[in-house]
């Protein structure tokens, strides 16, 4: 763990450069392919193109939470210096993806279903995910003591992790208006290849985007830790000085 931490930190700058470049390339390919060169659906028509944003955003919404939960578990189990920082860095990014997913879903829902929003199990559990993210952001920053905030946030992140399998399997466990999964279906492929490929490219693009944002946020979090630490030592130093000077 420490080995990988050190390795990642040493190459953070290069990693960030590569992930940014990868994001840009994949995003351009995926968007042009999905929006201009992939066919219209036989039922949804051109509206199907929302899928190329909606589904990758949803995947990353779940993925960012999973990263947050794993980091939180590591942080609660022992002292991994980077775990709290990764968890804190991941939640606003995940919230962003979840918001993109909910907004694009609503825009697709109105013309296709006839409603922007319905309270079915998939949509409701996804909204709960957004609230979990927002709650985590608020809780982590609610304490003056950094460690206590991180600890409370880690517990919330782990409790909320129960929601992830509920989101994933909601379309199988209950009758929902949201359609079941197309890609992980075992039987026949539910999606034509000329739609599946741009979707997968967009999926990779969003993953690279997530890594990029995570790296940026980790760096800024670490800078904040350093600022806090130097401020603390400075305070101690001035206090000690005052004591020695007898003021």
């Amino acid at each position: 763990m420490h080995f990988f931490t050190k390795l990642a930190l040493r190459h953070a700058r290069a990693l960030l450069w590569w992930s940014s470049a990868l994001t840009l390339v994949l995003l351009v390919i995926g968007l042009v392919w999905g929006l201009f060169f992939s066919p219209a659906d036989y039922q949804q028509g051109e509206m199907v193109r929302i899928l190329y944003i909606h589904a990758p955003a949803a995947w990353m919404g779940l993925f960012a939470y999973t990263v947050m939960a794993v980091a939180s578990a590591a942080s609660l189990m022992g002292k991994y210096p980077l775990a709290d920082i990764v968890a804190k860095a991941s939640s606003p990014v995940g919230a962003l993806f979840t918001i993109i997913c909910l907004v694009t879903g609503a825009l697709w829902g109105k013309p296709m279903w006839g409603a922007y929003w319905v309270w079915d199990a998939r949509l409701t559990s996804m909204l709960i995910l957004l609230f979990l993210y927002l709650g985590h952001i608020a809780l982590v920053n609610a304490f003056d003591d950094y460690g206590r905030g991180a600890r409370a946030g880690a517990i919330l992140a782990l409790i909320g992790f129960i929601n992830i399998p509920i989101i994933k399997f909601s379309v199988d466990w209950w009758n929902t208006l949201h359609q079941p999964a197309s890609i992980t279906r075992v039987a026949l492929p539910a999606m034509a290849m000329e739609m599946l490929l741009p979707l997968l490219v967009m999926g990779l693009a969003f993953k690279a985007y997530y890594v990029t944002l995570l790296l940026v946020r980790i760096q800024s979090e670490m800078a904040a830790v350093q600022v806090r630490a130097s401020r603390l030592t400075q305070n101690n130093w001035t206090q000690n000085n005052r004591r020695e000077n007898g003021r």
Binding site: D41, Y42, A115, M195
Partner: peptide
Amino acid sequence: SSVLAKHDETYTPRDVAESSLQKKW
């Protein structure tokens, strides 16, 4: 009081929709 359409999980290009693939399904 309201009727919503439920979309299924299949995504098919328009020109393929009436082809042999669809008949097989």
